[in-house]
């Protein structure tokens, strides 16, 4: 049996007696943890994306704030400064952009063949690849959100209560989860990173301008109003904005009022949840086909 002692022998020689019990949940946690750890090691050794991801929204905040410094008072509502109005828009937009880029590392893994390393492994479920990316992007978004909330408080937008911060975290999570899923779906569906970057380009800023991030609905042309009122970003921005402007908020508070739409806080959360579900249903077949 000298053969069975060699570290180069197949495990069937050594372990034929002991059967390893199947533990799909434990395995899923193990592989998701390892894949997430890889992303964080990358972040730690190449922190430039994180630094840029924090600096950029802070610059948005300062520059846009300065751009509308002398906007007529009362335009946005009684006693509401532009920085207070803007902070929620920048929080959501930053989370959205980050999530939209979530597919890029996966696309590069596909192109460099690293994904094959994962696909030949006996993963409990290949959705651990998706789960790891989502955990990573959600964590990054929380760090960015914290930075924006901090700077906004510093420049006079005020600081929401603990419950408010919790609600902001939930909303950021909802928008990030859906958009991350969308981006990952694209990373598996599109032929290469050039196409993915093209999609990111044509989606990113247009969705920002077609939302209530920078200006309220009643500033907009009619067609843009229509677009903005179905834009998921609007449904994330408005409840956060409500938290910033009204310390007293409930799920029944009306966060957006138009002639055709009366959106409550709770309803916008439901809308975001619905958005997530629709995206998941859309990408499910793509990812299943790739992973089959």
């Amino acid at each position: 049996m000298s053969q069975s002692l060699s570290p180069l022998s197949p495990n069937s020689v050594i372990e034929s007696q002991q059967t390893i019990p199947d533990n799909p949940v434990g395995e899923f946690i193990q592989e998701t943890g390892a894949l997430t750890k890889r992303l964080f090691i990358q972040l730690q050794r190449r922190p430039s994306t994180l630094i840029a991801g924090i600096v950029q929204p802070l610059m948005w905040l300062l520059l846009f704030g300065a751009l509308f410094q002398y906007a007529p008072e009362g335009l946005l509502g009684e006693g509401i400064g532009y920085s207070q109005f803007l902070a929620p828009g920048i929080i959501v937009f930053t989370a959205f952009s980050g999530a939209l880029n979530a597919g890029l590392p996966v696309m590069f893994d596909r192109e460099f063949g690293f994904l094959n390393r994962l696909l030949v492994a006996p993963l409990s479920s290949r959705f651990s690849i998706v789960a790891a990316s989502t955990i990573y992007i959600v964590s990054l978004s929380f760090i960015q959100t914290a930075a924006i909330v901090g700077l906004s408080a510093f420049i006079g937008a005020g600081l929401p209560s603990l419950a408010g911060l919790g609600a902001i975290a939930l909303i950021v999570f909802l928008i990030v989860a859906g958009v991350t899923a969308l981006s990952l779906g694209l990373a598996f569906a599109l032929p290469g990173h050039v196409e993915l970057i093209a999609v990111i380009f044509v989606t990113n800023l247009p969705l920002l301008f077609a939302s209530t991030a920078l200006a309220p609905l009643n500033f907009m042309a009619e067609f843009l109003k229509a677009v903005a009122s179905v834009n998921p970003l609007t449904y994330a921005i408005e409840p956060i904005r409500y938290i910033y402007i009204n310390p007293e908020w409930t799920f029944n508070s009306t966060v957006l009022e138009t002639s055709w739409l009366n959106l409550s806080f709770g309803a916008s959360l439901l809308a975001l949840l619905a958005f997530d579900i629709v995206i998941l249903l859309l990408i499910q077949p793509i990812i299943r086909r790739r992973f089959a």
């Binding site: 395995e27 193990q30 592989e31 943890g33 390892a34 894949l35 750890k37 890889r38 390393r117 994962l118 492994a121 006996p122 993963l123 409990s124």
Partner: peptide, 9 residues
């Protein structure tokens, strides 16, 4: 290798 080990549980 640690990553790979986790992928093979």
């Amino acid at each position: 290798l640690q990553l790979q080990a986790s992928l093979y549980h």
